[in-house]
Simulated assay, not measured.
Amino acid sequence: MSVDDPRIVDLDVLLETVHDESTFIDFVDALAADFALEKELEDGKPVPYSAGLLGWENGTIDNFLGASARWGETGVFADKQNPWRRCAHILYAGKWYE
């Protein structure tokens, strides 16, 4: 398997579609699938000292949620018109924010 796997979803594109509860849940589900796919592609052997194959910097729930919260506190890209997308942005940041 390679990172050209057809199961990979472009989370950036999907994030822009978030506008209500249903699309937010779809995004959260895709984010979870992205995490699981990275673990599968790495076959239990993550690359040390770098992001995973799909860009995951935070591989535990506590690190993921902590990074999400820290990024959310920065107020970057605060979408005041669409709180569903803002919440999705906060969770997405937990993937890569350190």
Rank of each mutant, 00 (worst) to 15 (best):
L14E: 11
R70H: 11
S50Y: 07
W71F: 14
G52S: 08
G94P: 07
T17H: 04
S22R: 15
A32L: 11
L14W: 06
G66W: 04
E98I: 03
S2L: 14
P6Y: 02
E57Q: 08
G72K: 00
K39H: 13
H89S: 12
G75R: 12
P6I: 09
E38N: 01
D34E: 06
K45G: 08
G72S: 06
H89Q: 14
K95Y: 02
A69V: 09
L54N: 05
D12Y: 00
S22E: 15
Q81V: 06
E21C: 10
L91W: 13
P6A: 08
V18L: 01
N63S: 14
L37D: 03
N58W: 07
D43W: 02
L54R: 10
V47P: 00
M1E: 13
V47G: 04
K80L: 08
E40S: 09
V9Q: 04
A32F: 07
L14S: 03
L41F: 01
R7G: 01
V47N: 05
A69L: 13
V18E: 05
T23P: 10
M1Y: 12
G52L: 04
T17M: 02
D29L: 04
I61H: 15
S2A: 12
F64I: 05
S2P: 10
L15N: 02
V18T: 07
F77Q: 14
E73T: 09
K80S: 10
P46H: 10
V13D: 15
C87W: 06
N63M: 09
R7A: 03
D79K: 06
H89P: 01
A33V: 10
W84L: 01
I61P: 15
A67F: 12
D79S: 04
K39S: 12
A78L: 10
F64V: 05
A32D: 11
A36F: 09
T60P: 09
Y92H: 15
Y92M: 07
E38P: 07
T17G: 01
G66D: 07
H89Y: 15
D79F: 08
S22W: 12
W71G: 02
L31K: 03
C87G: 11
S50V: 08
N63R: 13
R85L: 00
E38Y: 01
T74G: 08
E16G: 02
L15A: 02
D62T: 10
